[in-house]
Write a protein that binds this DNA or RNA. Sequence first.
RNA 1: GGCGCCAUAGCCAAGCGGUAAGGCGAAGGUCUGCAAAAUCUUUAUCACCAGUUCGAUUCUGGUUGGCGCCUCCA
Length: 465
Amino acid sequence: MKVFNTQTRRKEEFVPVEPGKVKLYACGPTVYNYFHIGNARPFVIFDTLRRYLEHRGMEVAFVQNFTDIDDKMIRRANEEGITVKELADRFIAAYYEDAAALGIRPATVHPKATEHMPEIIDIIEKLMAKGLAYAVRGDVYFDTQAYKNHYGKLSGQNMEDLESGARVDVDEVKQHPMDFALWKTQKPGEPAWESPWGMGRPGWHIECSAMSMKYLGETVDIHGGGQDLIFPHHENEIAQSEGATGKPFVRYWMHNGFLNIDNEKMSKSLDNFLTVRDIRQQYDPEAVRFFLLSAHYRSPLNFSAEQIEQAKAALDRLYTARDNYLFILEKAEDKTSSDADTVLMDTAKAAVVRFDEAMDDDLNTADAMGVLFDLVKQANIGLGTDSAKAAVQAVLDAFAAMGDVLGLVKPKQQEDDAQVEALVAARATARKERNWAESDRLRDEIKSLGYTVEDTAQGQKVRKG
RNA sequence: GGCGCCAUAGCCAAGCGGUAAGGCGAAGGUCUGCAAAAUCUUUAUCACCAGUUCGAUUCUGGUUGGCGCCUCCA
């Protein structure tokens, strides 16, 4: 598999440190609110990456953190009149619900910053011991000047350029404008933890380093996040991690492009923030996932109602196709494959190969989805009453393999409803008698129970919805 | 000022040296008691200019138009 590495700015062959095992870390949400559609993009992307790696037989240790202590958390908790912990608990629970709706599987571990104070403090102490950090009145800062050799290597900036672009109102406590906080001293009313520098809380960047190292070791294979995290967040993670361990922190950096809303950047000032929680009220979340995977992960993507509706229509085609194949499978005979069957089985196998090739090319989900639709097209043409069971099954297997990686098209569940079955049976009789009025009446009645019945060459096909 | 990205049909989006995947939408056929589904046909010289090349959407330079980071942010 090839992966675009932000650090080198080119596609590189992905080789995990340990063959067959992948250590993957993705920056998770700060749980001060429901996560928004822009947050959802990396979650879906790295979930898909993880699924794909597993599909290729890799064992993936996937860590995605929760930032449950920072300025925004404290401010929001104060506004709500609850503790930071209560706020975090509420939105962590909400995260799992919304993520599940988007087909995002839970990571191997979802560590919380507040539960890793010893690990965080440990790294800071190492940095202090190496002269790469300094304490000032209870704050601790990373000393970019002392470290300077590599600072800026991920974002492609050098210290001088960063300085010239830096804000003028330099915090006087810091020795250098680029220095960043590892530990912040407690302010009145804020949650705080004990440390060698007094009561306080960790800076934002250090928590990811601490949790990544704790669960995945000093070097991870892939670290992902949004492009806006490249600087300063990931740059700082590298500095503090490599400063502390002397080892490479991350082998491949993957960053997803932005998601805009109606061609504008999502921002609070524009008041165009869309949370997944809200979107779920209006749209099928699976269509949202489809939409998020419909473009390459590094491209910018524009969210609009029209896009979601298009995605929904496309998704429906997939569901209809899958349900048709399942219906045909039930009726299909377990017979020797015809030439046409053999061709179709080969097509199905080839599709998975092409799908993998697309995904191997820096996770080209758009291309991969095209392969899925190609298979659907071929199967819709080739599969019919006279297809051998093996051919139908081959198509379904290929379909499922691709769908599983994309996290799209959920497995069909049995929908036994005695009342509906009786109506369908009655309708079959009416149809045999060519009593179309009764047939249509029964179809309406079935519809009113929430099912749709379609007439095919093989008889009636019923589906929910 | 520094670093970087993008421009492909009505909409979305792959491709990235040998004359354009796929989806949505639209129009017209086929099948069907009707409906649904499916299927067939039609719907693009790839922003502009100049180079390199036998050949460029694909490489180089430029122009125009969007956008991001450099400050909390996925």
